[in-house]
Amino acid sequence: MEQEAVSQIRKKDSTPYRFLLVDDSEFARKNIARVVSMLGGLIAGEASTGREAVVKYQEIRPDIVLMDISMPEMEGVDAVGEIIREDQKATIIMVSSLGHKDLVKKAIAAGAKHFITKPVQIEYAAKIVKAVLEGCGG
């Protein structure tokens, strides 16, 4: 795998992609934000629980959600289910630590497009996000 920097991407109308970051840890959100900036994206909103994520999603209709798997007040998996039920085209990428593979599998089965493993390696994660946004990530 070449370690080249991942180039920035824009939507077809050349506006930046709008991200919703969901994690109960502020540090984690800050960290994943680096991925967004690497890709030239825009953080449209943040949420710290699953419930909040569902509400925020309706409100801001982001292009993509980066969602933690384990959170208080509705787990990531359930939030994925709720969001997909409202918007079948929702693009969600799960962010999880190594121990949660069964939950990640559930989330993917529920409609999440991909997953990123914590601790997040920014370039690798950016590559995945870009591929998903370009529609060939899975």
């Binding site: 795998m1 999880s96 190594l98 593979k101 599998k105 993917i108 997953f115 493993t117 390696q121």
Partner: peptide, 18 residues
Amino acid sequence: FDPQCRQREVGAFMIKTQ
């Protein structure tokens, strides 16, 4: 597998889903 892929069980699950 991509050498960087860390949760290969989930990765395989994605292949399977595809």
